[in-house]
Design a binder for these strands. Sequence first.
RNA 1: UGACCUGUGGUGUAAUUGGCAACACGUCUGAUUCUGGAUCAGAAGAGUCCAGGUUCGAGCCCUGGCAGGUCAACCA
Length: 565
Amino acid sequence: MTNGTENKEPAKKSNFIHLQIEQDLKDNKNNGRVHTRFPPEPNGYLHIGHAKSICLNFGIAEKFGGKCNLRFDDTNPTKEEMEYVDSIMKDVRWLGFDWEDRLFYASDYFGKLYDFAVQLINEGKAYVDDQGAETISQQKGTPTRPGMESPFRDRSSEENLDLFQRMAAGEFDEGARVLRAKIDMASPNMHMRDPIIYRIMKAHHHRTGGKWQVYPMYDFAHGQSDYWEGITHSVCTLEFEVHRPLYNWFIDQLIEGDYRPRQVEFARLNLTYTVMSKRRLLELVKEGYVNGWDDPRMPTISGLRRRGYTPESIRSFSDRIGVTKVDGMIDVSLLEYSVRDHLNKTAQRVMGVLNPMKVIITNYPEGQEEEHDAINNPEDPEMGSRKVSFSRELYIEQEDFMEDPPRKFFRLALGREVRLRYAYFITCNDVIKDKDGNITELHCTYDPASRGGNSPDGRKVKATLHWVSVKHAVKAEVRLYDRLFNDEDPGGHKDVDFKEFLNPDSLNVLPECFIEPFVSDAKPLDNFQFERLGYFNLDFDSTPGKPVFNRTVPLRDSWTKEQNK
RNA sequence: UGACCUGUGGUGUAAUUGGCAACACGUCUGAUUCUGGAUCAGAAGAGUCCAGGUUCGAGCCCUGGCAGGUCAACCA
């Protein structure tokens, strides 16, 4: 990450976690050190909610001159894969953050964790339970009723140690026994009711292979990993709030000296019209409702990247939404605002026609062509200009012509004059139709004196249209995306599966669009503004002769708004 | 019938030790414009979940309610 001064992004908003850290610093906790970590489980791709956490954690390190680790929470070999590890590292880097040499895995600590478990056994604070999952669960009680103690709770340390070692040696079947912390079966906090800390799993682990037959549970690995890495502020989401006493209990058993990590919880991100759980996203991918984790309709980092979102836009979004403990729902329009805001300032402008309507300039000589200057980005003069080719046959947007224009429609109509951007004023004289009455082309005349787009007599037109020259344009496929779900909170209905709310029109492929040849040199992910339409970027599916564009987001559109009134 | 957490315009966040509820998005006007974009100017919209209390003064403190969320995986 760039350091402070050269960073043009606005100063980061403060939040309650920053305030707590400032207080900790005042109290000289942990000798004034600030060290965070981003701890994903490699069981899926990262999504925009993780981006919030990444920005928060790395942002804290940046703000307080501390460090932020990347740590994979890989304690469940049945769900975790190398593919996910790779994608996560790629996404974090793409977002603009750097863990330097601090890449860790919970599996790095399997040895220490095992030793710690042995220590707890020796201290009489952990025991092997021979009961099955169902029995243990029943004995656990309910949130409103205390649990009851396991008949194996008071085994001797020797027996526990022997059993645990044999568990680790693979002597028992999966599920046959577990190691539990001996805390309090009557605790009002379910997590303190002798939580399971080790289970037998004979699965192959993506890093340790077949070395282990027992794996630590999340609660037994996370805080300890924090401790061994010197983490000072262990930032996680709200659902772990009730785990905090357990987190602290393990730290208490481990602690020597003054240093102590502290868990702080914040509200995870919820966005309207999408789902944000890895389970649901995985379901969409596995069952083919979308085309992979990086489908541009997905709220994954890889999906947003492919869709044309920039790291800057995601970071500014993340800053804009803030950090609190209120479990709310952010309007996607805020995300869309963030990309528009960034792309408006940075994206190359280009003209492209999505739904072509042929226009013949009847008074323009056949075979003649010429070039006009076009500004690359009016928001950034340094981006310069380019030439666009003009000729007798052009395409304009179908929606830019109406035979029977309503009062506030300013664009082309029979007998009306409009401007072709950077080129000429044209007037429509004739509408050509086929047998069925469909308009096939428009006959227009141009005013040679308006070359460049202005008439010397000061004549005004109410509309400027984008266009391309038929002869020069590049044919492209354009993919238009709409929200993946029709419901604001598809995952929030108790009796209806979220997939019921899938938007059947979330993908609209336009196979025959025409774009000015400037885009021929584009590389995948390059962002453009197609003037008057929106922001688009080149997709990986492009082939040399056939570019494919994704619409990132349309431009704000006060005309559609007017129509909807 | 439990524990923990959270309630501020439509949405998201602010509000120094209690001191006129602020900002962003969205919405609506108007100006401007070779993008019905951008930009600029302005407006509407909450009296802070409710009821008490302390105080000269409460969104901030106290009491009691109410509402929502989380917790009963050998998941994280």
